[in-house]
Design a protein around this nucleic acid. Structure first.
Lengths: 183, 183
DNA sequence: TCCTCCGGTGGGCATTCTGTACAGCGGTGC
DNA sequence: GCACCGCTGTACAGAATGCCCACCGGAGGA
């Protein structure tokens, strides 16, 4: 493939017609369709670079670069870190634990939980419990050890655990991105 | 910076001494320390390429390339998709809903939930409920709409929702990677 | 109404990285 | 003892990146 771009109209150098969507208020609002297509493209084939994106999206390279910079600056795209599968590194068991915390012990408990590698995620929630953690373990037996370590801390009054059996819909964001882009 | 690599010992071309860890059984088991350092490096600075990795890790470029290929082939690294923040695209409210399903309706319910963009994740679990979904919404008011759409389906008998107030520990995997690498 | 700003386009440049190949070394296991 | 596998340097052509420019055209303010 030659390094040429792929000018649809080779003769006329300029045919500036904003793609994606009218820019209207794209600066402060969410994302437009071009952003959506770009995110989808990168999500599906992360290995392609900016130049390839511009080819697929039929826009100028500078546009893709600018959009990417803007998306990262706005915090829409946090990064491109590798997605590591816990199961593949020896932690095939996932569980959600709901924790009840005694008054005023919140920050201590958070610090404690943040120090446990098997705790992948921690939320404070409304409802029955006060906190919800996502934990992983090497096996069901190992899960016992992890739970003991997680709840073995002053300030955690009660806890209940739900083991994940299946994961019919793994974490995804693309459908939401499409919806946001089509706003 | 000149295109020269950075040979520590310019004279002697070969000083092969396996880094990371003795390879022992690295092929079938999990990951070694070199893998761990590589993943951490990529997670922290995803934009750097293979060459830069090899410089930081003080190993040959081919090694980094081989490790990366292997990690991807083994499924340890799933991809390098952009991490999109739902809050940044207009969905700042997160909630977890526990669903109780009537017998035999499982697969229908899954299909239904998979069709809802606001459903980011779906698990089948042990315990009180049968399923657990992670959902997002544009606002607390909008959450009502989303919940109605989620549970408005034959086969879902009961549901309870917990709104996420705070997220003291956002999803992370690095501490676990370190632990697995130090096995 | 005119003017400025901003985002998009197309092009060009030097630098850098990638993909791929090669031979050699050394530890592991048969 | 020998073959295998992983790591090391090295090399090369092709491709992509980062950064520059001039220009166009719509939106919004003066």
């Amino acid at each position: 493939m030659p390094p040429a771009h792929s000018p649809s109209s080779p003769g006329s150098p300029n045919s500036a017609a904003p793609q994606g969507t009218s820019i209207v208020g794209s600066t402060n609002d969410t994302i437009d369709t071009l952003d959506g297509r770009l995110i989808r493209l990168l999500a599906e084939e992360p290995r392609i670079g900016v130049l390839e994106c511009s080819r697929r999206l039929q826009v100028a390279r500078g546009t893709v670069q600018a959009r990417l910079d803007r998306l990262q600056a706005k915090g829409v795209i946090g990064g491109f870190g590798p997605e590591v599968d816990p199961a593949a590194i020896g932690y095939p068991v996932t569980a959600f634990a709901t924790l009840e915390i005694s008054q005023g012990q919140g920050s201590d408990v958070r610090a404690h939980l943040a120090g446990v590698p098997e705790v992948l995620e921690l939320h404070t929630i409304t409802g029955i419990g006060d906190m919800m953690v996502r934990i992983v373990a090497r096996s069901n037996a190992d899960l016992q050890r992890v739970i003991d370590r997680v709840v073995g801390f002053d300030g955690i009054v009660r806890s209940s655990t739900a083991i994940v059996l299946e994961n019919p819909v793994p974490y995804r964001i693309l459908p939401l991105v499409d919806q946001a882009a089509a706003e």
